[in-house]
Simulated assay, not measured.
Amino acid sequence: MTFTKTSQKFGQWADSRANTVFGLGFPSEQQLSKFAEKFQEVKEAAKLARERSQEKAESCSTHSHESSQEAPTSPQASSVNGTEDEKGRRSPPIESLLKSNNHRINPVKKWEQELRTLGESNARLTAALQESAGTAEHWRNRLQVCKEEGDRLRERIVELEAQSLDISKEREQNSRLSQTVRLLEAEISEKEQELERLREEVRVIPGLLEQCEGLQQQLQSAENSNAELESRSKTLKCNVEESRQKYGNLVKELTTFLGILDGKIDELHGFRQGLAKLGMDN
């Protein structure tokens, strides 16, 4: 098995026998490095133990082969030089030696089978590692795309923050304009009240005009009766003169009042136009 670092805090290895890939995540890159070093040490120790066992198996097989080559010479020599009883006495050790050699050869076969299994496992592990390397490259590319997207989002956040500052400034300006509008509306209400008072005063003017007409009629009747009442003519003339002066003063005051009222109306009209323009600009 081979331990592979797929990222700064994650590693994985494959178990070919179970056809499974295992992965471990670590809180830091140092712990991942320590685990990889220990994993490599254990792997090398297992490899060294396997090589030693293989050497022992080879030595056992070599020893068994040599013993198998030396074993037949003893029966031949005994057959030539010895008797049949000697042959019967020497045969059991040879059989026991062959049995021991067979017992020694069997582990070698097991080790050869284990080596073949390990070779197949290494091939599967290589394929799994190549696949994991491709997966890691895919995720690296994906991470790079995510980083670029994060950078774009950060830039967008900065832009939105700047826009929010502009919006807050505009809100403050709108609040100031709203206060100004409220003050202007209060002034308009005051002007409208004043205008209403002026209108009430204007409504009194027709009564005054009627009174003037009545005075004129009285003046006319007084002039008609002037001939008859010569004794009262001086008094009536004085009264008429005073009435005329009062009428003239009243007409002058009325003219002045109308001029003032026209100016107020024009001022109020201009003020309304300015307020409407200000509302449209806002």
Rank of each mutant, 00 (worst) to 15 (best):
R244D: 01
S164E: 12
K277M: 06
Q40S: 13
A36S: 13
P206Y: 00
L129E: 05
E114R: 06
S78G: 08
N174H: 06
L98V: 08
Q245N: 00
A18Q: 12
E201A: 14
T4P: 00
E55G: 05
E159W: 03
I205R: 13
R244M: 02
E172G: 04
S61W: 05
S168Q: 07
Q218E: 14
R52G: 11
G274L: 12
V145G: 13
S53D: 10
S164W: 01
V108R: 06
L268S: 11
K34W: 00
L24Y: 07
K246F: 01
M280A: 13
K264V: 05
C60D: 11
V145S: 15
A18N: 11
R199Y: 00
E187H: 10
L209C: 12
A133Y: 04
N101P: 02
C238F: 05
D281Y: 05
K9M: 06
G11W: 01
R142L: 14
L48D: 07
L278W: 03
S243M: 05
E172Q: 09
P72F: 02
N282G: 12
A36P: 01
G25D: 10
L278E: 09
F3P: 01
K277I: 06
E44A: 14
Q217K: 13
Q273D: 13
L278F: 11
P107V: 01
D15K: 02
N282T: 15
S28Y: 02
I94M: 09
N101K: 03
T135F: 10
G214P: 02
E70A: 15
Q30N: 12
L195E: 11
V21D: 02
E51T: 03
S189P: 03
K237F: 03
E253S: 12
P75I: 13
L250N: 11
E242F: 02
Q273Y: 04
S33W: 06
R50Q: 13
K264L: 03
G88S: 12
L208F: 12
R203V: 04
M280N: 09
S16F: 07
E112R: 14
A227G: 11
H138S: 13
R154L: 12
E241I: 02
S168A: 09
L32G: 02
V42S: 06
E213D: 03
W13I: 01
L177W: 00
T62N: 14
K147Q: 15
R156T: 14
S168L: 04
N226I: 10
S7M: 02
S96I: 09
Q273I: 13
D262I: 01
E131D: 15
K252N: 09
T73H: 15
E66Y: 05
E131K: 15
S91V: 11
L208H: 14
A127V: 09
G214F: 05
T20R: 15
K38E: 12
E253W: 04
R89W: 06
P107A: 02
L254M: 15
G119N: 10
G207P: 00
M280D: 04
